[in-house]
């Protein structure tokens, strides 16, 4: 299976990265990590990219890492659909002070527009 992991730098996206890499390693899936520009994230694209490489080094996992500039959701959908990915993996949302889960704007766009399956990591 070919998996596209979309990471914008929010806490839930970093958690999703860790889970997705572990799962891909177990299953022998081919992984591409796409770093996207999330306007709500405190981390810059470069900082997120560094984190991704740290994760990969820790696991001695080989994965294609690329930066997608521009509207994050549409960039992810475009890459997944045009390059034959089977699945997009994203963070599963943040929790509000009283514990409500809310889905981020990137996940929402991808869910509504992707032709591939989408996995949100909780």
């Amino acid at each position: 299976m070919r998996t596209l992991v979309g990471i914008g730098g929010s806490d839930d996206s970093l958690r999703a990265l860790a889970v997705a890499l572990e799962r891909a390693q177990d299953a022998g899936d081919e992984v591409t990590v796409a770093v996207v520009e999330n306007p709500d994230s405190d981390l810059s694209v470069e900082e997120v990219e560094t984190r991704v490489h740290e994760h990969l080094d820790e696991r001695t996992l080989d994965a294609d890492v690329r930066v997608l500039r521009g509207h994050p959701g549409s960039q992810l959908v475009d890459v997944a659909d045009s390059e034959g990915f089977d699945r997009i993996v994203l963070g599963g949302g943040e929790t509000s002070p009283l514990g409500k889960i809310s889905i981020g704007s990137i996940a929402e766009f991808v869910l509504l527009n992707a032709n591939t399956s989408v996995t949100l990591i909780r």
Binding site: T95, L98, G99, K100, I101
Partner: peptide, 18 residues
């Protein structure tokens, strides 16, 4: 949006928090 959580222990943890 996931609240109240399901399961008694989850409910207790959530109530402790709020």
């Amino acid at each position: 949006q996931g609240i109240p959580p399901t399961g008694e222990q989850q409910v207790r943890d959530w109530l402790d928090h709020i």
